[in-house]
Simulated scan of single mutants.
Amino acid sequence: MPTPTPPSAVTPENFAVVAVAASAGGIHGLVTLLEGLDSELPVPLLVVQHLDPRHRTVLAEILNRRTGLAVKLAEQDETAFAGTVYIAPPDRHLLVRPDGTLSLSRSELVHFLRPSADLLFESVAGAYGPRAIAVVLTGTGNDGAMGVDAVKSRGGTVIAQDPRTAEFRGMPEAAVGTGAVDFVLPLEEIPAVIRGLVEIKK
């Protein structure tokens, strides 16, 4: 297992974080995404997948079996390390601070949702500016659209699954509709683009 790289060790010209949002159809989307990423990915991945708040989730265990990356439910005040996937727990907003530590919140629902992709994306935009990547996968509704606008306005990069290839097109379609998306891609092509963006230039 490679030694985790704290966010402060990532040089300013490199990307520092990837934030991913998914809803309906998202488990398949996340499996495909993570299977295509290298276990030595030089950034952390923060994930909002809309989950039933009434039940304990086994999403981390499912994804852990399908990827070389470490996958876990995010915990309050932990540091987000490279090569690790942090999933928002059911009924908690997931946010990240500029020092790379995570925050979980029970603040009010956003568009009837908690966790909210918009809040995650807005927090990575505020924390990392042009060093943030936001990814919107399959899902119903429009969660993430305001957030991708925030990421783009701070100079970050936005990727959306091509709505025509998404199991549920609402979320990626809303993201594309903002005009803030840099890459609109079939799901299978997204991991290669992420790898190309975050690869540390020697």
Results as ranks from 00 to 15, higher is better:
Met1Ser: 15
Pro2Ile: 13
Thr3Trp: 02
Pro4Ala: 11
Thr5Trp: 01
Pro7Trp: 06
Ser8Trp: 12
Ser8His: 13
Thr11His: 12
Glu13Leu: 10
Glu13Ser: 13
Asn14Met: 12
Asn14Tyr: 10
Val18Cys: 05
Val20Phe: 04
Ala21His: 00
Ser23Pro: 02
Ser23Asp: 02
Gly25Val: 05
Gly26Glu: 08
Thr32Asn: 13
Thr32Lys: 14
Thr32Pro: 00
Leu33Lys: 09
Leu34Pro: 04
Glu35Ala: 12
Leu37His: 03
Asp38Phe: 00
Asp38Met: 01
Pro42Ser: 10
Pro42Ile: 06
Pro42Phe: 06
Val43Gln: 02
Val43Ala: 05
Val43Asn: 01
Pro44Ala: 09
Leu46Ile: 07
Gln49Asn: 07
Gln49Ala: 06
Arg54Val: 01
Arg56Lys: 14
Thr57Ala: 15
Thr57Cys: 11
Val58Lys: 05
Ala60Gly: 12
Ile62His: 04
Arg65Asn: 11
Arg65Met: 10
Arg66Pro: 00
Gly68Ser: 10
Lys72Met: 14
Lys72Ala: 14
Leu73Gln: 15
Asp77Pro: 00
Glu78Asn: 03
Glu78Gln: 15
Glu78His: 01
Gly83Thr: 04
Thr84Ala: 11
Tyr86Ser: 03
Ile87Tyr: 02
Arg92Val: 00
Arg92Gly: 00
His93Pro: 06
His93Ser: 07
Leu95Ile: 11
Val96Ala: 06
Arg97Pro: 00
Pro98Ser: 12
Gly100Ile: 01
Leu102Lys: 02
Leu102Val: 04
Ser105Trp: 07
Arg106His: 13
Arg106Ala: 14
Glu108Ser: 13
Leu109Phe: 11
Val110His: 11
Phe112Asn: 14
Leu113Cys: 13
Pro115Lys: 09
Ser116Ala: 13
Leu120Lys: 05
Glu122Lys: 14
Val124Asn: 02
Ala125Ser: 12
Tyr128Glu: 01
Tyr128Ile: 04
Gly129Gln: 13
Gly129Ser: 14
Pro130Arg: 13
Ala132Lys: 08
Ile133Gln: 06
Val136Gly: 04
Val136Phe: 05
Thr138Pro: 01
Gly139Val: 03
Gly141Phe: 06
Gly144Leu: 08
Ala145Phe: 09
Met146Leu: 14
Gly147Tyr: 04
Gly147Ile: 07
Ala150Gln: 08
Lys152Asn: 11
Ser153Phe: 00
Gly155Ile: 09
Thr157Ala: 01
Thr157Asp: 00
Ile159Ser: 03
Ala160Leu: 06
Gln161Asp: 03
Asp162Pro: 02
Arg164Phe: 01
Arg164His: 12
Arg164Ile: 01
Ala166Asn: 07
Ala166Pro: 04
Phe168Ser: 10
Met171His: 06
Met171Lys: 05
Pro172Ser: 08
Ala174Val: 09
Val176Ile: 12
Val176Gln: 05
Thr178Gln: 09
Thr178Leu: 08
Val181Asp: 06
Val181Met: 08
Asp182Glu: 10
Phe183Tyr: 15
Phe183Trp: 14
Glu188Asn: 12
Pro191Glu: 08
Arg195His: 12
Glu199Ile: 07
Glu199Asp: 11
Ile200His: 15
Lys201Ala: 13
Lys201Trp: 04
